[in-house]
Every structure is written in structure tokens, then in C-alpha cells.
Computed example of a mutant assay.
Amino acid sequence: MAVAALSNEETKPIAAWGAVLSMALCVAVLIASEFMPVSLLTPMAEGLRATEGQTGQAISISGLFAVAASMVITTAAGTLNRKWVLIALTGFMLVSLVMVAAALDFTVLMLGRALLGICIGGFWALAAAVIMRLVPESDVPRALALMYGGQAIAAAFAAPIGSYLGGIFGWRAVFWALTPIVAVNLVWHVIALPSLPARQRQGFRTMFGLLRRPYFLRGLIASMLSWGSAFTMFTYLRPFLEQVTGADVTTLSILLLVLGCAGFVGTWASGRYVSGSVAPLLKVPTLLMGGCTLGLLLFGGSVVAAGLFLAVWGAMNTTMSVIWMTWMSQNVDDAPEAAGSLMVAAIQASILLGAVVGGLLLDGLSISATFAGSVVVAVIGIALIGNGQRLLKPE
């Protein structure tokens, strides 16, 4: 379905856009599942008799297991066909949602979120390498943008709908509602994904080899800072909008919808304009997102100002993913699975640390301290990226 035979037994993909769309749907439900607690943080905390800072760790625990899974997935999967590995990971997501929706205490919630973390780490570690096999090289940025369109869909609709429906039916109903979508995606994977036999095994030795490349290590740290800044803020966005902006449930849902819909703009722009060397673009998302977080600190009491800042933040959030994964595909094309594992581990570690540090700042100081910490991390990331040239592989 997805490939045509060429000379010397080498195969190159004919664009398998149906499979890319299946990946995009998986991204949508994966992102929705991972970050739904952001829009439901307050009612989940009340229902489980925990603080908002503690409940925010439901995101950090999935990040912790995602880090571990991303590091071992290519070794653990060995010679297994990557199609069936992706199908199994999607099955883990379905089980996780059922556990979270049915959780009667904080422990079961955290176990369900840990299982989701395995799915997150495994899927994202393989995603870019799989996309590189589904379409020709020239179409990779566009295919990545399409796949991350699933992120935009989740950001646009999952949080506001989750917040709104959670207020009407309760937070458990929101997680139950995701389960049939994941089941449909599971079937779509089986139908649309072509056979993806394992290629050269890329395990820990390959990963360590990549870490000895200075340009890649710098990029890895820079990506960690970029995502760390973003999720120190995003994980605790609802408490900020409630406490500082004074948003009720309806206003909160509208603001989250604005943020999410802006993600479509970022996806469209990245698919259209991200091509060639991405060096000049690497710092743009972190610069603008950090600026928006600072703007919220200064002017977040206004609903209109908050909406404008969240719109820019949302557009840059999806753009950031496409830019960094395109950077990886261009600069580590000789070991895409190993590079993907390291990238996902770095990003999930930054989400984990962002949620932990942000929660400590929230519980120990204030929500403003959490957002200020996000800005500081963004500044460090921008300084490391510079003009992006030092993050490119040598000619």
C-alpha cells in the first residue's frame, strides 16, 4: 500500500496519506488523553481529595514513564514490525483511559497515567521515523505538519470541550468519552498502516553515539528548555485563568478554545513554510511563547488580553513540534529511531520537570511564581539556541 519496490531491493515510500491521517488521529487522542487533566484539574482534585498541585502530578507521572518507554522502545521492540508495535501502544492508551475514568482513588489514577506514559513514550519515539518511511523525503515536513494537526485538533477541542462537559457531567465522563475514539483509531491503524519491518536495530549504543555529537546534544538540551518552559506554564493554565483572569467555566472553555484553534494556524503555517534549513526558526516558538507568558503575568487580569496571548501561544505550540522534529529528520537521518527516542525522552523529561517544578511553585508560592519560572526557562533556551547554526550537523 505504502511502498513501491526500487532497484537493489531498496524501497522508497509513495505518500501513504491514509496512514499519516491515522497517525494524526492517534496524536489527537494521545494529546487529549495526556493533557486532559489540565482542563479538569480543579474538579479532579476535589473528586480525589487531593490538592491541585498533587493532581498536576498526574501529568508528571505519565511524563516519567514516557521518558523510560522512549529510551527502551527501539531495543525492546527489537525486530518486531513497527506497525504492530504502534497498534499495541494504542491498545495501552485504551486501557489507560478506562483505568483513569474508573479510578476511585489517587493511586489507581496514577497507575492509569503511568500506563499512558508508556504509550506516549513509545509512540513518539517511533513516530518521526515511521513518517519518514510513509512519505518521500521532500514530503516529510508536510507529513509531520499533518500528523501534528492532530495535536492542534486536541488542543482546539479537547480542553474546552473537556472543561465544559466536565462541568455538566463530571470529569470521569470526559475520559469515558475518549474510549470509543481510541477504539476506532485502533482499527484504522490495522487497516491503513502498511507493514513496517524493523530496519537496522538502533539501541543504547546508537543513542550514546548520538549524544557524542555536540550539535545534537545542544539541540536536545535546547528542545528540553523549550518544552520545559511551555509546560511549566501550560500545566497550570486553568488555575491562572481562574485566579488571575477571573474566568468562570464558560469563559475558561472559550479561552482554551481560542488557544486550541490557533494551533490550526500554527500547523498550516509550519506545513507551508517549514522547509530547507530550520536553523533560523528554532528559537521563534520559544521566544514568542515565553513573551506570551510574560504578557499574561503583566496583563492576564484582562480576558481580552489573555485571549490574545493564548492565541499566539497556541499557534507557536504546534509550530514548535514541527520545527524541532524537522530539525531531527534533517540532522540525524542516519539513526531516526534512536534520535526519536532521545528527543521524546528529553521532551517528556522537560514536561515532567515543568509539571513538578510548576506544582511546587504553585503550592509553595503562587501561580504567578509558576509563570515567572516558565519565562526564566524560556530565556535560557533562547540563549542556547542563538541563531541555530551550532545545532546543525557539520557539512
Rank of each mutant, 00 (worst) to 15 (best):
Met93Leu: 15
Pro194Trp: 13
Val38Arg: 07
Gly340Tyr: 07
Ser329Asp: 00
Ser350Gly: 13
Trp176Ala: 05
Ser163Lys: 01
Leu86Thr: 14
Leu144Gln: 08
Thr250Gln: 14
Phe234Trp: 15
Leu144Cys: 10
Thr235Leu: 04
Asp333Met: 03
Ile120Phe: 06
Gln330Ser: 07
Ser321His: 14
Ala154Val: 03
Gly276Ile: 11
Val67Thr: 05
Ala28Asn: 07
Gly307Met: 11
Val284Ile: 14
Gly63His: 13
Ala28Phe: 03
Phe309Tyr: 12
Leu298Val: 04
Ala128Gly: 06
Arg172Tyr: 00
Phe157Lys: 05
Leu257Lys: 01
Ile181Ala: 12
Gly290His: 12
Pro141Cys: 11
Ser96His: 07
Gly381Ala: 00
Ser60Val: 05
Leu281Lys: 13
Arg199Pro: 00
Ser39Val: 06
Thr90Leu: 02
Ala32Gln: 04
Met289Arg: 12
Cys292Thr: 04
Ala372Thr: 14
Ala156Pro: 10
Leu115Cys: 00
Trp268Ser: 09
Gly364Met: 02
Gly263Ala: 06
Met343Leu: 13
Leu41Ile: 08
Leu30Thr: 06
Gly381Ser: 05
Gly53Tyr: 03
Ala369Tyr: 09
Val20Cys: 11
Ala114Gly: 12
Ile87Glu: 06
Gly167Met: 07
Val304Met: 14
Pro197Glu: 08
Arg212Ser: 15
Leu6Phe: 07
Met1Tyr: 06
Asn185Val: 09
Ala177Asn: 07
Ile61Tyr: 12
Ser302Asn: 04
Leu288Thr: 08
Arg49Leu: 10
Ala192Pro: 03
Phe169Leu: 15
Phe106Leu: 14
Ser321Val: 15
Ile367Pro: 06
Val27Asp: 01
Arg238Ile: 11
Trp268Pro: 02
Pro239Cys: 13
Phe35Val: 04
Leu80Phe: 14
His189Ile: 11
Ile131Leu: 13
Ile191Ser: 03
Val182Asp: 09
Val85Asp: 01
Leu255Cys: 02
Pro394Ala: 15
Gly63Gln: 13
Val244Trp: 08
Arg199Phe: 02
Ile120Pro: 04
Arg201Tyr: 09
Val85Phe: 08
Ala101Cys: 05
Leu94Asn: 11
Met132Ile: 03
